[in-house]
Simulated assay, not measured.
Amino acid sequence: MNLTLWIAAGLLAAVALVGGTSKTFIPKEKLAAQHGGEWTGHAGVGFVTTLGILELLAAAGLILPAVLDIAPVMVPVTAVCWVLLMIGAMITHGRLGQFNLVMLNSVYLAIAGFVAWGRFALEPFTS
């Protein structure tokens, strides 16, 4: 179970890293031109950048606390925060009629929920 939780957290961290990097470093206009980026046309530059920074922090929070053994409880806390972020993403994409992205976000939500549940209840990190 521990390996499965590590793989799930690593997958989410990779998704967060890619998403955060694109939202933080790619101009908003270029993001809006990409498939699924229509939501950025309705959002301010600061909001998009803030989401990108939150995703970069999530990427770090899903892996580094456990690897460095510094406050490893932050891994499931970060996973819960990712669940909340995905709920917001699902609402946003649903309002825009992007139901394929709603389904993708629901998969990420389920994985994050699994990591949170697994690290809080099934196989918590012990110091």
Results as ranks from 00 to 15, higher is better:
3 L>G: 06
4 T>M: 07
4 T>V: 11
4 T>I: 09
4 T>L: 11
5 L>H: 05
7 I>E: 01
8 A>M: 10
9 A>H: 03
10 G>A: 00
11 L>M: 12
12 L>T: 07
16 A>S: 12
17 L>C: 06
17 L>M: 05
20 G>P: 09
22 S>R: 03
23 K>C: 02
25 F>N: 04
26 I>A: 08
26 I>E: 02
27 P>A: 10
28 K>M: 05
29 E>L: 06
32 A>Q: 11
38 E>F: 09
39 W>T: 08
41 G>W: 13
42 H>S: 14
42 H>P: 04
43 A>Y: 13
44 G>S: 15
46 G>W: 12
47 F>A: 11
48 V>S: 09
53 I>C: 04
54 L>I: 07
55 E>D: 01
56 L>V: 11
60 A>I: 15
60 A>R: 05
62 L>A: 05
62 L>S: 00
63 I>E: 08
64 L>K: 09
66 A>K: 00
69 D>T: 13
70 I>C: 06
70 I>K: 07
71 A>E: 13
72 P>V: 01
72 P>H: 10
79 A>L: 03
80 V>H: 01
80 V>E: 02
84 L>D: 02
85 L>H: 06
86 M>V: 04
90 M>V: 05
91 I>T: 08
91 I>P: 13
94 G>H: 13
94 G>Y: 12
95 R>S: 10
95 R>C: 10
95 R>Q: 15
98 Q>K: 08
99 F>K: 04
102 V>T: 03
102 V>I: 10
104 L>T: 15
105 N>G: 06
111 I>F: 05
112 A>P: 02
116 A>F: 14
116 A>P: 07
117 W>P: 02
119 R>I: 14
119 R>L: 10
127 S>Q: 11
